[in-house]
Amino acid sequence: MPTNERGANRPRTNALTERRTPWGGIGFFTAVGLVAVAAVVFAFLQTRPSQADDDIKGVVVHDGLSRNHTTDPVDYPDSPPMGGDHDPTWQNCDARVYDAPLRNENAVHALEHGAVWVTYRPGLAADQVAALARRVRAVDYSLMSPYPSLDAPIALSAWGRQLKVQDANDSRIDAFLAKYVKGPQTPEPGAPCTGGKDTP
C-alpha cells in the first residue's frame, strides 16, 4: 500500500540511535548556521548609521564655542566667524541672498539656529556669485553675503564648521549644505530663520 511504502521498505534512522557520526549532516548544518550568523551580523551593520564615511574634505572644526547673547561687538577668532557669543537678534536666513556685508554678531546667531552662511570675497566673478546665489535661494536655512576680509574666494560656515573653496561649482558646496543645514552641529534645533534682522 502506498501509505507504508517508505516505512516498510527503508529502515528508520535516528540521529540519537545511529552508531556512525553523521559528519555530512554536521558539516551541512554548520555551514547553514554560519550563513545565518553572517546574515544577522550584516543586518546589524546595515541598521547602524554611517556617520564617519561622509566626511567632507577640508572642513575645519571648531568645537566648544560659547553662546552668550550680547549687544556689544564680539572679537571672533575665526574669519568669517563660525560661532561664539552673538547678538540677541539673528540675521534672517530663509534662503536669503544679501548683497552687502552683514554684522558678524547677527550672522553668528543664524548659525546657532542651524543655518549655513555662504560668504564670498568681493570681486568674485559675477557668474560665480550667481551660481552661489542659485544654491542659497534653493536652500531654506541658508544665507549669503559678501565678506570683505575673506582669505579665500568662498567660505561656507555652519556652527563650529567651516569650508573654504576656490570655485562656486566645487561639489563640496552641496555636500556641506546637505550635511550642515539644520545639521547635527546645530546648538538650537527648531529655532527660526525668519523674524530676525531682515537687512544687512
Binding site: R135, V139, Y141, L177, V181, K182
Partner: peptide, 8 residues
C-alpha cells in the same frame, strides 16, 4: 539631509 541644494 534637511535640504536638497538641487531645489525643492
Amino acid at each position: 539631509p534637511k535640504t536638497d541644494p538641487r531645489g525643492p
